[in-house]
């Protein structure tokens, strides 16, 4: 069974067993506007929770994307290299950025579920 969590920095993470798939939320994609570049992390890279995972650029701004959980990058979404606009058209489905082998399942306690995240966005 998969569970999806959200960060205050607008990343989502889908957890399936010990595999964590990471992307940015619809809210974030909309706020950034047209995405022009995604810097994917290197496979094998190890990150700690809330450390910089990779970077994204839109016509308006450059942003860092943080790892919602600690782990090791096992694969990345190469389609984003040629077509970063997928982040605008399908931010929470097709435009996943990296899959991590999760180090500590307990870290999800520091993340939000959808309802709380939606409320958090309303307050911004």
């Amino acid at each position: 069974m998969t569970m999806t969590f959200y960060t205050k920095e607008h990343e989502w993470v889908k957890i399936d067993g010990n595999i964590a798939t990471v992307g940015i939320t619809d809210y974030a994609a909309h706020q950034l506007g047209d995405i022009t570049f995604v810097e994917l992390p290197a496979a094998g890279k190890t990150v700690k929770q809330f450390d910089v995972l990779c970077a994204i650029e839109s016509v308006k701004a450059a942003s860092d994307i943080y790892a919602p959980v600690s782990g090791k990058v096992i694969s990345v979404n190469e389609a984003l290299n040629a077509s970063p606009e997928i982040v605008n058209s399908s931010p929470e489905e097709e435009a996943w950025m990296a899959r991590l082998q999760m180090a500590d399942p307990a870290e999800t306690s520091k993340l939000m579920r959808r309802e709380r995240y939606d409320e958090y966005c309303k307050g911004l």
């Binding site: 607008h10 974030a28 942003s63």
Partner: peptide, 8 residues
């Protein structure tokens, strides 16, 4: 994610 931009 954190955003940086064209700021001095």
């Amino acid at each position: 994610m954190t955003v940086t931009g064209n700021r001095a």
